[in-house]
Design a protein around this nucleic acid. Structure first.
Length: 424
RNA sequence: GUGGGUGUAGUUCAGUUGGCUAGAGCGCCAGGUUGUGGCCCUGGAGGUCGUGGGUUCGAGCCCCACUACCCACCCCA
């Protein structure tokens, strides 16, 4: 226990962190282009926010939340998703009263108590964006376009965009009625889970892997959309075509969170059959009001970073190499060590990455070490070098050497050598 | 929550129908030029065989329980 990270959590080690930074920076850059501003919300919130915002009937609220009581007797929950906290911040900071729309992006850890498996952890990370204040389907298109651009620029292929409309509370009521009428006579033949779903949220029955195939002639939400929702969905598709974004209408997308209205979408990997969803989102026009704010529309998505990195691995997407060590200095003897330290810090001071030996290793061992560090240059400093005020800088890629002095002009010439060939 | 699979050095794995001091590759450390990497050679360190019980003269191997990890379902990122 002592030496084991908790179930469903993972260390992100230095050999992987550069990949995370790469996707984080690209995401922030693209969000900037789309004029989304970064927002940072707390890692935990009052439990009530999620119970209310995410919805009492969802799996997340029912069985997946990391909830505990703090020392003040408050019920606290580690955030299981990113939207509700941003909605809370929007309301608490009166952002809704400023000019609209308000557009945010974030990168957060999220926590759900689930059984871990491929592409699923208890602590995972997601990018997200939220756009408030506009009910325009062009905003839906923008949110989708941002996700598509991001994945595209990362070089991930083999993804598919699925869209659907889950309607608004009014047309959903009509639909649920029709669906229940359709399902009622079939109820005895459905699995036990579906019998529960029939009561709570009949749309979920269509999602059932066991019985779904038997229900291919079931009424679908799209046929029951009210005029407003129908035209919203049609205009979204027109905008997606304008933006040249391929999509597929998938009436099965329901989204597990209760707050979704109208547009629901997922970006899924076509190869992976399990945990294929890398990005999921949709419109949530009733959420801000539900959380105690004004009646304000919103739309956003969540994009799983672990799943994203897995996909990049699978599709062999290119990630720039992390920077190499510029210079390794190998001291010999105590005097050499002092001279080495002096040069080491002189280099570091002017922005050159440099390392030396702290284990008293032999030259040979230090060379091996420098090789493993992937250093660009190695400089050995011992009594001879000190006597001559001159050392050899060995270029590790080809073994060639250049003489440098142990003073300021030597530092300068090292800087010039590195400047001339940034990534040799 | 349900189901399946797997736990042997740092790591990837061998380990025969139960039988002497549990092995290999890679990695790590040292040496092969008293000061120069990659290749090669030699040597070395490193294992409560997941944990606890049971069967047996004897268990890494068989049985039970627990636990961890992996995978699938549900659901989702």
């Amino acid at each position: 226990m002592l030496t084991k990270a908790p179930r469903g959590t993972k260390d992100i080690l230095p050999q992987d962190v550069y990949k995370w930074k790469y996707v984080e920076e690209l995401f922030a850059e693209i969000c900037g282009r789309f004029n989304y501003k970064e927002i940072r919300t707390p890692t935990f919130e009052h439990t009530e926010l999620f119970a209310r915002g995410v919805g009492e009937t969802t799996d997340i609220v029912n069985k997946e939340m990391y909830t505990f009581e703090d020392k003040g007797g408050r019920s606290i929950t580690l955030k299981p998703e990113g939207t509700a906290p941003v909605v809370r911040a929007l309301i608490e900071n009166n952002i809704y009263a400023q000019q609209q729309p308000s557009k945010f992006f974030y990168a957060i850890p999220a926590f759900r108590y689930e059984k871990p498996q491929a592409g699923r952890q208890r602590e995972f990370h997601q990018f997200g964006i939220e756009a408030f204040g506009s009910g325009d389907p062009a905003m839906d298109a923008e949110v989708i376009a941002l996700a598509v651009s991001f994945l595209d620029e990362l070089g991930i292929t083999g993804l598919k965009l699925h869209i659907n409309s889950v309607g608004c509370p009014e047309c959903r009521q009509t639909y649920n009625k029709a669906l229940r009428e359709y399902l009622e006579p079939k109820l005895p033949y459905l699995c036990s889970d579906c019998k529960v779903r029939f009561e709570k949220n009949p749309m979920r029955v269509l999602d059932c892997k066991v019985d779904g195939s038997k229900l291919s002639d079931a009424p679908i939400m799209l046929d029951y959309l009210c005029g407003g929702c129908r035209s919203h969905f049609e205009r979204l598709q027109e905008y997606l075509k304008v933006l040249d974004i391929d999509y597929e209408i998938d009436p099965k997308i329901v989204r597990g969170l209760d707050y979704y209205t109208k547009t629901a979408f997922e970006i899924i990997s076509i190869n992976e059959n399990s945990q294929g969803t890398v990005c999921g989102g949709g419109r949530y026009d009733g959420l801000v009001k539900e959380c105690g704010g004004p009646d304000m529309p919103g739309i956003g998505f969540g994009l799983g970073i672990e799943r994203l990195l897995n996909l990049m691995e699978a599709y062999d997407a290119k990630i720039p190499d992390p920077p190499k060590l510029d210079v390794y200095i190998a001291p010999v003897g105590e005097d050499g060590k002092k001279a080495a330290l002096s040069m080491l810090y002189a280099l570091r001071d002017i922005g050159i990455s440099a390392e030396c030996d702290y284990l008293g290793r032999s030259i040979k061992a230090q060379m091996k070490y420098a090789d493993k560090l992937d250093a660009k240059y190695v400089i050995v400093i011992g009594d001879d070098e000190i006597r001559n005020n001159m050392a050899e800088a060995k270029k590790m890629s080809d073994g060639s050497t250049v003489s440098v002095t142990l003073d300021k002009s030597g530092i300068k010439s090292i800087e010039d050598m590195l400047g001339g060939s940034p990534n040799d």
